[in-house]
Amino acid sequence: MNSTKRIIQAVGIALLCIACQSAKHRGGADQTSLRVMTFNLWHGGDAVKLPRDTTIKYQLEAIRRAKADVVGFQEQTTNQTDHRSRARVLADSLGWQHHLIDASRAIISRYHLEPLDSAGSSQAVWLTLPQGQKVVFGVMHLMYTPYEPYDIADRKLLSAEAAEASARETRLHQVQHLLDEIAAYRDYPTVLVGDFNEPSCLDWTAEAIRQRGDTLLPFAVNWPATAWLLEQGFKDAYREVYPQVNERPGYTWTSVEGLWRNPEIHDRIDLIYFSGNKLTAKNAWIVGESAELSDIVVTPWPSDHRAVVAELSLW
């Protein structure tokens, strides 16, 4: 009798293990991992002052080391060597697809891309993943001047209200225009990346500014472009993974100390946002030169911006 019971128990445990493994396998099959990257190429890479082929080599190295599936570029057109779309060159080198938005912005991907509009001039594309899921993917490159953090440091802007008003007039309409364009597709998982030329409002709260302790930055600012995206239901992928601003500032501007200002005002202005209840942020990395801020190092680093890559899960 005891022997029979032991056999029955053993069989039951074995069946339970098989059922659990099967459930785990089914759960894994229902989840897709997507690595998205935002990368400002700095005039296509020409501004780095390296030979063209050398610059392309390290741009490709950055994408490969980031293990990116899709990349949103800014400043993707070269203007000193061959005047070609560097995004197209990189896509061809990788055997990927590409979509050119304008002289600055482009998207390349290992997965199928299709513009949202039939004319092909869309700021966003359909990204079709291997299991058939569709994601809306768009790229922004917001106006670079005036750059309000510099104006605050230089005492040209003396209050949060003045800084927010300047930023609102300069850039907010660009974000609204893109969201208007994709409004009909808001039921789909959506990813928006870009060089915002404006910090995240999450990084300039009263507590974050107090902890930063920079006497040149005396007040908090609710930066309007990012605040508005949060109000529209988007999430900041890097801050979803690393909510403690002082522990992981994630500065992407700039990798070239003293290029535009000395002392420099560093900030996280290259951002990845996502929306939709089927998307979550699993991890995020800063890609750049050999420095404490870089999680993924490429030397020499071919840009004045550090890049950002985020791993998203799609259910």
Results as ranks from 00 to 15, higher is better:
V245Q: 05
N277M: 06
A62V: 01
Y150G: 01
M143V: 04
M143F: 01
P199D: 07
R65W: 02
L312S: 10
F274V: 06
L41Q: 08
Q174N: 11
G95C: 06
D117Q: 03
L202A: 08
E148S: 13
V71L: 01
N40M: 13
V256C: 10
T54G: 03
V48L: 09
S104L: 02
D236A: 08
L314Q: 05
S313H: 13
H43P: 00
A106C: 02
L16P: 05
V36C: 11
R212I: 07
Q80L: 14
L217F: 03
I13N: 07
L127C: 04
I272C: 07
A281E: 06
S109R: 01
H141F: 07
L41P: 04
I107T: 04
G138C: 08
D102H: 02
P189I: 05
R110Q: 09
T32H: 04
L116A: 00
W228D: 10
A208S: 11
E264Y: 03
E161I: 12
E148Y: 03
S33C: 09
V135D: 02
W285C: 10
I296M: 08
Q80W: 09
V175W: 01
T32I: 15
L259M: 10
G288M: 12
K5I: 15
T78C: 08
D154M: 11
I265G: 08
Q21D: 11
S33D: 14
S303Q: 12
L116H: 01
L34H: 06
